[in-house]
Design a protein around this nucleic acid. Structure first.
Lengths: 231, 231
DNA sequence: CCCAACACGTGAATC
DNA sequence: TGATTCACGTGTTGG
């Protein structure tokens, strides 16, 4: 492609001989370019420059190799911009960080008792089903799950998804339940909320002696909350 | 820092005048460098080169800006190698892809009935608790969850974590249950496995007519599997 | 002293 | 053509 050595000699000759005093030759005292005593140091610096050139090529290869890996990982065209690839990568890593943050924030039981019942009104109401997203946090007790199942059964609601996490005596329950529009109207949200509220009140009334699991220290019984946060 | 325009003029003079025939001047027919009629096109190409230089600087800035964003996102020193940063980014994105793959593979119910009971023997046996990781997939039925709760209750095991996913008539249950070593020995794994096996057999016996949810098409009842895969 | 990493300006290619 | 992107060789700096 490009002239390799010839123009280099030419260039270094020019910069060293003409332009500046910061010459490539350091040991010689001669003022004449291409003088005899300069040939040795010239060879040395030439070899150094060749090494330098090679090293720089290797470095570029390394960087571009990783860039190509990123291109394939992001499944984008091999002719996509370097800058664009990096921008997309920034986006991806940000998403990853956000995800892990949400996981730790949204999957652990909260300290306060909370109930959230969301009615997915927009989501496929015409197929005869209503979908609720239920989430509540409260003190754990042995019969909580059984009571919850009974409640949903009595409301004739079917559990499609359940994610139940219990840690340190607190429990968090995320449910997706479906109900028939034939049996339920819009007021079924209230039924569900009230049933869950009674569930949590039962939970905070029952005083359980729990052997020190988890952390090991026997925590003082958390007092029943004055009110349960309803969302 | 570096000489901006002066050496450029010098260089372009050299390459254009001395080295090669691919000169910077295209329209002129003069053979003399710095001839009068060349000054115009020289100015033009000089301006072009200045634009080019500027554009390249902008490009480098863009790339390095993204690289710095990646540095901060990966919380690594601002003097970390470009190549190293990119290598770490490749690692991260691979992990992300792996995670999302595992999520879709490990959270959806399998087509075949399966039971897996893992005894975490290495994990804190001396605090008087045994920890089991239970996972099973089977056909869904209304009383499945209730039966499961009864089984665990009868075995005096406490559910620490539960992840229950039901889709398309199939259900997948991932549980973490703890048992007392006072009440259970090593044989409790077998108890648990057998109880779950009976649960799944009950599941495959009961023939349920299910209204076509999800996909909408009424799927033919899947025949009871000849055997349940035990892990 | 060299080595490794960087920014820079430039030529070439692509659109 | 003009704009944009890339690879290259080089000068420079810090360990």
């Amino acid at each position: 492609m490009q002239p390799e050595v010839s123009d280099h000699i030419f260039y270094s000759f020019l910069t060293g001989g003409f332009c500046d005093s910061s010459s490539t030759t350091t040991t010689t005292s001669s003022f004449y370019p291409f003088a005899i005593e300069d040939t040795i140091s010239q060879d040395k610096s030439l070899a150094a420059l060749r090494n330098h050139k090679e090293a720089e090529r290797k470095r570029r290869e390394r960087i571009n190799s990783h860039l190509n890996k990123l291109r394939s990982l992001l499944s984008c065209n091999s002719k996509t911009d370097k800058a664009t690839v990096l921008a997309k990568v920034v986006q991806r890593v940000k998403e990853l960080k956000q995800q892990t943050l949400e996981i730790s924030n949204e999957t652990l039981p909260s300290e306060t008792d909370e109930i959230s019942v969301l009615n997915f009104e927009d989501c496929s109401k015409d197929d005869g089903r209503i979908i609720f997203k239920v989430s509540f946090c409260c003190e754990d007790r042995p019969d909580l799950l059984q009571d919850l199942v009974k409640i949903l059964k009595s409301l004739q609601m079917e559990t499609v998804y359940a994610d139940i996490t219990t840690i340190g005596g607190r429990t968090r329950n995320d449910l997706v339940v479906v109900a028939d529009t034939e049996k339920h109207g819009v007021e079924s949200v209230k039924f569900l909320q009230n049933a869950l509220k009674s569930l949590l009140e039962r939970s905070s009334q029952s005083v359980v002696m729990r052997r020190g699991g988890g952390g090991g220290e026997m925590t003082k019984r958390r007092r029943a909350p004055d009110h349960i946060i309803m969302v």
